[in-house]
């Protein structure tokens, strides 16, 4: 069974990490760049497999690992050190990252200076089309709504369970009616409050983040005032 390990490293720590992997005899598998739709930054993923370690691991528990180094949040003009002095086979991928994503990779052993791919549009892979952005935003909204709905359903279920649990306890222990009544009333109230809170939370998550923050702040001040009033 294969498993993947992703380690996020800073751009300055990249070369020491690669050197360490080379030191333990890991083989280089690939490198690729991705562009984040949300903030427009770039991400580089370097993949390695340590064949010897993998074989030992397979003999033990049948699993092996694909090791990945991830460099997050790269700016387009930030200089990225080339790892080609450790792994020469990286040259097609680094040149590709330069030509298709427009990333500035320095000290490549075989540097095509932008003539590796001659494509009809400059840096085509770095383009984020409005459609993609819109689809992504829509998906995020749908997801937030679905999560809110799920949370609401969970809260309702919890409330129902609480009520049912009370009923069962009632039958089994046969407590004094008055106490049971008050308990049931209390639980009911608690369940209602929980439901209301869940509904509110659901509404908030579906809202714009800025608006949600404002509403939250307003609620907090109201709660504080209520508490003060009660104490007074």
């Amino acid at each position: 069974m294969q498993k993947a390990i992703y380690t996020t490293v800073g751009i300055d720590e990249l070369l020491p990490h690669v050197q360490a992997l080379k030191g333990v005899g890991a083989r280089f598998v690939q490198m690729h760049a991705e562009r984040c739709v949300d903030d427009g930054s770039y991400r580089l993923v370097y993949t390695f497999i340590n064949v010897r370690a993998a074989q030992e691991q397979i003999a033990q528990d049948g699993s092996y690992a694909i090791e990945n180094l991830v460099v997050e949040g790269i700016d387009q003009y930030q200089e990225i050190p080339s790892i080609s002095s450790y792994y020469p086979a990286v040259f097609p991928f680094e040149n590709e990252a330069h030509d298709l994503f427009g990333l500035a990779i320095t000290d490549m052993q075989i540097d095509f200076k932008g003539f590796f791919y001659q494509v009809s549009t400059a840096e085509p892979m770095s383009v984020i089309t409005p459609e993609v952005k819109a689809a992504r935003e829509k998906a995020m909204k749908v997801r937030a709504a679905a999560e809110a709905k799920a949370r609401k359903a969970a809260a309702e279920k919890a409330a129902a369970a609480a009520a049912a649990g009370e009923g069962a306890a009632d039958a089994a222990v046969a407590q004094p009616a008055a106490a049971a009544g008050s308990d049931a009333q209390h639980d009911d109230a608690a369940a209602k409050a929980a439901l209301k809170a869940a509904e509110l939370e659901a509404k908030l998550t579906a809202m714009d983040p800025e608006k949600a923050a404002k509403v939250r702040a307003a609620l907090a001040t109201k709660a504080a005032r209520d508490k003060q009033n009660k104490e007074a």
Binding site: V29, A89, F93, V132, R136, M140
Partner: peptide
């Protein structure tokens, strides 16, 4: 050896598809 990588972004389309094929590794 060929390497396939996919990354989702919550939509029906993939965020990134990457294939590293044997020949690109053997160019060096």
């Amino acid at each position: 050896e060929a390497y396939y990588y996919v990354r989702g972004n919550g939509t029906k389309n993939l965020d990134r598809f990457r294939v590293r094929t044997p020949t690109s590794q053997n160019l060096a």
